Simulated assay, not measured.
Amino acid sequence: MSVRETVQAVLDDAGTTYAAEAGIKLANKPSPLYRLLVLAVLMSAPVKAEVAVAAARELAEFGTPQRMCDATWQQRVEALDRGRCTRYDERTATALGKGAQLLLDRYHGDLRRMRAKADGDLDELRDLLTEVPNLSPVGADVFCREAQLVWPELRPYVDDEVVGAARKLGLPTDPVRLTQHVEGHDIARLTAAVIRSA
């Protein structure tokens, strides 16, 4: 099977982004970007991806930094519990409140302002993302992998987790060679599919 055929098979089998699975219709708008950030925070915790996705789905009702701040700590804990994220619910509920307040204070609740501050510098963007409480470098990778759908300057975003998964599947580990067989808007789907398939 050629690389192109393998890439297509992986996409056909597992080509749903984590954001889409969490019910996030990703767009370059404040609410979907914030919901992606919440998902990235959840995926920073040592929980299975499906638990993080389920918890992100439950937290959708608090889909802006202002709504997250307005929610009580108990409401956030209950949403996390409904998503089966019970082991880290209290700490995560606190972090989500603090993170929402940080975004309101620094970026008026709009992650596009963080993007503008990074001004195309990927390292700067990752540093700014990891200032959000409980958002680890792994979570920053998750955010950037998924956000490349709507922030083209991130493309191709292929982090170490994707490289390791591509190696297991016998796919190229060079970002350009791995992604050259798909359109730019499908790179986020491909990176998610490679991770899921491996």
Score class of each variant (00 low, 15 high):
3 V>G: 01
6 T>V: 13
9 A>N: 10
10 V>K: 05
14 A>L: 03
14 A>R: 07
15 G>I: 04
17 T>L: 03
17 T>C: 14
17 T>G: 06
20 A>D: 13
22 A>V: 13
23 G>I: 09
24 I>P: 11
24 I>G: 12
26 L>M: 11
26 L>D: 08
32 P>W: 00
34 Y>S: 03
37 L>C: 07
38 V>Q: 05
38 V>W: 10
41 V>W: 05
42 L>T: 01
44 S>A: 03
46 P>C: 03
49 A>H: 01
49 A>E: 12
51 V>F: 02
52 A>G: 08
52 A>H: 00
55 A>M: 01
55 A>T: 07
58 E>K: 05
60 A>Y: 04
60 A>E: 14
61 E>K: 09
61 E>V: 09
61 E>G: 06
62 F>H: 15
62 F>C: 01
64 T>E: 01
64 T>I: 00
65 P>D: 06
66 Q>A: 13
67 R>Q: 11
67 R>M: 03
69 C>Q: 02
69 C>D: 04
73 W>N: 08
74 Q>H: 11
76 R>A: 00
76 R>M: 04
86 T>D: 13
88 Y>I: 14
89 D>I: 00
89 D>G: 05
90 E>A: 11
90 E>I: 09
90 E>G: 09
91 R>H: 07
93 A>S: 11
93 A>C: 08
94 T>F: 08
94 T>L: 10
95 A>T: 09
96 L>N: 10
100 A>M: 08
104 L>D: 05
107 Y>Q: 08
112 R>K: 14
112 R>T: 15
112 R>S: 14
115 R>H: 15
119 D>G: 14
120 G>C: 06
122 L>V: 15
125 L>S: 13
126 R>S: 12
128 L>V: 06
128 L>K: 03
130 T>R: 02
130 T>V: 09
135 L>Q: 03
137 P>W: 01
137 P>C: 05
140 A>F: 13
140 A>I: 03
141 D>T: 09
141 D>G: 14
143 F>E: 02
145 R>A: 02
146 E>M: 01
147 A>R: 07
149 L>F: 08
149 L>E: 12
151 W>D: 04
152 P>G: 02
153 E>P: 01
153 E>F: 11
154 L>T: 03
155 R>W: 06
156 P>N: 09
156 P>D: 02
158 V>L: 07
162 V>D: 02
163 V>G: 03
165 A>I: 05
165 A>D: 05
165 A>P: 02
167 R>C: 04
168 K>R: 14
168 K>G: 05
168 K>L: 13
169 L>W: 02
172 P>L: 14
172 P>C: 13
172 P>G: 12
174 D>N: 15
175 P>V: 01
176 V>F: 11
177 R>N: 13
177 R>W: 09
177 R>Q: 15
179 T>E: 06
180 Q>K: 11
180 Q>Y: 03
181 H>E: 13
184 G>I: 02
189 R>S: 13
190 L>T: 06
191 T>W: 05
192 A>V: 07
195 I>V: 14
195 I>H: 01
197 S>I: 00
197 S>L: 04
198 A>F: 04
